[in-house]
Amino acid sequence: MLAAFFRLFGRDVRLALRQGSAGTSTVVFFVLAVTLFPLGVGPETAVLARIASGVLWVAALLAAMLSLDRLFQADYEDGSLDLLALGPLPLELAVLAKTAAHWATTGLPLIIASPILAVLMQLDGAGYLTLVAAMALGTPALSLIGGIGAALTVGIRRGGVLLSLLVLPLYIPVLIFGVGAVEASIDGLTQRPQLLILAALSLAAAVLAPLAAAAALRLNLE
């Protein structure tokens, strides 16, 4: 079962990498969205430094959300999802493998890109390490919670807007604690509680989200 899990994970990662544009387009969106803010609010470094952590997290949230429609859509259309549902791997674990692959191809590039964007946004030096740690702990929750929305809307034509309406309210705790961790370390306070809560959110999502997403997929495959 473990072999099947990793086989599926490897397949999805390979598919995403060979399509080429998949991982990079998410990062390009992330960079572009962050670039808009200095143009919008003006280039004063003090203002940018004040909003840097919030802007980076909001842009990461939107980038993660925009890549969600890829999660199940292609497999649903060409019928591989039906085979996965019939296969020996429980659908819950298949969902977990697919979301893990989604995180590896979208969440991980966002984490790597975020320190560079933090420099552009004049983020206070004390916040860098915490930003990367918070992103590393928080982005799995984004992929997992997003998986529920993607599974619910998989059979719906033009489900993109609906997906954002379903998923964004559920992303709010990750945003609050992600920004809170960075702000705390900039203010010289401990960032430990926020990071622990982010880890807790990701772990709880890893347990519960595949159940809900698999139920939604079964319903859409009927």
Partner: peptide, 18 residues
Amino acid sequence: AILALVGAVNIPIIKFSV
């Protein structure tokens, strides 16, 4: 129904975080 239950799990978390 699935969405309502997901929301029910999340409402306490959202409320607590906010």
